[in-house]
């Protein structure tokens, strides 16, 4: 299950993390060791075993659809990296290629 630096570069791109060639060379072998160690998991997971995600059998939780006060806009915008006209200001969303 060897991961090449090209594989890691592709994954980093999907995860939106800009990694340098130096980072890639350091991370790829570390990830490989970890993946080797976790590979045993598929050995025991037979088709007859159901998956578990929670210790207690919980089903969907519902609540009444009532209007409740929200946080004031200034509190929400207070932590924003950039604000303009009482809104979040973001970098442009369309790249050159679009």
């Amino acid at each position: 299950m060897a991961l090449s630096t090209a594989d890691v570069a592709r994954l980093a791109e999907l995860a939106r993390i800009d990694l340098s060639p130096h980072d890639l060379e350091r991370l790829a072998p570390q990830l490989d060791v970890i993946l080797d160690a976790v590979a045993s998991v598929s050995e025991v997971a037979g088709a007859d075993v159901p998956p578990t995600s929670h210790a207690l059998p919980l089903t969907n939780v519902f609540r009444a659809d009532l209007v409740r006060p929200s946080l004031p806009a200034e509190a929400v915008l207070g932590g924003a990296p950039a604000v303009e006209d009482e809104r979040f200001r973001v970098p442009r969303i369309l790249g050159e290629e679009q």
Binding site: V38, V41, A45, P51, S53
Partner: peptide
């Protein structure tokens, strides 16, 4: 990101959830 990528989900996350049952 790798474990959840298309084609690997069952072998990784799916198997791991089964191990939780075991």
């Amino acid at each position: 990101t790798y474990a959840l990528s298309s084609g690997y989900y069952d072998a990784f996350y799916g198997s791991a959830q089964k191990v939780r049952t075991l």
